[in-house]
Amino acid sequence: MDKNCIPYGSDVSGGRFKCQDCGHEMVMASASSLPPCPFYKEDTHPKKCWKNLTGRGDAPEDPYPGK
């Protein structure tokens, strides 16, 4: 489970997350899918992922949606 680059849309356990492209931070409740960064733009967000700062991060049941 990669806590440094959790893709948009991944199911996560609750915690605090930081956008790997712009540094925006947010808190998510348990059993939620990570949304895209609210400041997402195709040309400025090539990684399209979050870093897990607190909590357990990527949920083992669905670590990478659509894969």
Score class of each variant (00 low, 15 high):
K3P: 14
K3F: 06
N4Q: 02
N4C: 00
C5S: 14
P7W: 00
Y8N: 12
Y8C: 06
G9F: 00
G9Q: 02
S10H: 06
S10L: 03
D11V: 10
D11M: 09
D11F: 07
V12L: 09
V12Y: 13
R16K: 14
F17C: 00
F17I: 03
F17D: 07
F17Y: 15
F17R: 02
K18H: 02
K18C: 00
C19Y: 02
Q20F: 02
Q20M: 11
D21Y: 00
D21G: 01
C22Q: 09
H24G: 00
H24E: 14
H24C: 03
E25Q: 13
M26Q: 08
V27W: 04
A29D: 15
A29K: 10
S30Q: 15
A31M: 12
S32I: 09
S32E: 15
S32H: 10
S32G: 04
L34Y: 03
P35H: 02
P36C: 09
C37I: 08
C37T: 12
P38G: 10
P38I: 13
F39K: 10
F39L: 14
F39G: 10
Y40F: 14
Y40M: 04
K41S: 14
K41D: 15
K41Q: 15
E42D: 13
E42R: 13
D43C: 06
D43V: 14
D43H: 13
T44D: 14
H45G: 11
P46K: 12
K48M: 13
K48H: 09
K48L: 07
C49W: 05
K51M: 12
N52H: 06
L53C: 05
L53D: 11
T54P: 11
R56S: 11
G57H: 09
D58Q: 14
A59S: 13
E61Q: 12
E61H: 09
D62Y: 08
Y64I: 08
Y64V: 08
P65T: 01
P65Y: 06
P65I: 01
P65Q: 06
G66C: 00
G66Q: 07
G66L: 00
K67L: 10
